[in-house]
């Protein structure tokens, strides 16, 4: 056990550049997927909160996407988009849609009806209603969704190496195929560390935004 730890540490120090470049790729894949899911999922979530039919259809679709095993999802997509970053980003954003859509929709739907009535009664146009009232009040829920989804994307991005995309999964993949346990562990640890850091940082952000006015 101690030998393994020592060997992992040796890998980090000797092959720093290799791991840093994997870390960079990992962050890139995750960030792009998170951004796509954030804006697309947010927009769909807003639409869901406005229309029950849209909600029924979108929730069915994103729930379905969420239940596909990631390996199968990657495998099927290779047939269409080939190997590489594109496939990885599509799969990662598709998974991340569910928490974003659900939380945005719930956040908006749960706004106090009195608040909505007051806003309407004072003559708020639809777009101002969205920007000034609905999105700010749904923000705590939306940020929670963003945080859950980001952690999930960073963790799942480890599998992206299996479809030829980069990222820390490359170290894991290489470790497994060459019976180099230390290499696989080194990659996994960095993914875990990255996921926890993002969870922590987004957690601080979430609090900062909402602690004063929400109970």
């Amino acid at each position: 056990m101690l030998d393994l730890a020592r060997e992992v540490w040796r890998l980090y120090t000797v092959r720093t550049d290799f791991f840093l470049s994997l870390l960079g790729q990992h962050l890139y894949l995750s960030a792009v997927s998170i951004a796509i899911a954030f804006f697309l999922g947010g927009a769909v979530g807003v639409a869901c909160a406005r229309n029950q039919a849209v909600k029924a259809v979108s929730m069915a679709v994103v729930n379905f996407l969420y239940t596909i095993p990631s390996i199968a999802f990657f495998g099927v997509l290779i047939a269409f988009t080939g190997i590489g970053d594109t496939t990885a980003i599509i799969v990662l954003s598709a998974y991340a849609l569910l928490p974003m859509v659900r939380n945005t929709c719930t956040g908006i739907s749960n706004i106090d009806p009195d608040v909505m009535e007051a806003a309407a009664g004072m003559g708020t146009p639809p777009l101002a209603l969205l920007w000034r009232i609905q999105l700010p009040l749904a923000l705590p829920m939306i940020l929670t969704g963003l945080r859950n989804m980001s952690v999930m994307v960073v963790a799942t991005a480890g599998i992206a190496a299996f479809v030829g995309a980069g990222g820390l999964g490359v170290a894991i993949w290489r470790g497994i195929t060459t019976y180099n346990l230390a290499m696989a562990v080194a990659g996994s640890l960095l993914i875990a560390f990255l996921a926890l850091s993002i969870d922590f940082l987004l957690g601080i952000w979430e609090k900062k935004f909402t602690q004063r006015w929400s109970s």
Partner: peptide
């Protein structure tokens, strides 16, 4: 026009509906 009309009318309800944020 409805929005313009509402902006000319003060509206107070039991739940107040102050904007919490």
């Amino acid at each position: 026009q409805l929005i313009a009309l509402r902006r000319r009318i003060g509206y107070v309800i039991q739940g107040v509906g102050l904007f919490p944020h």
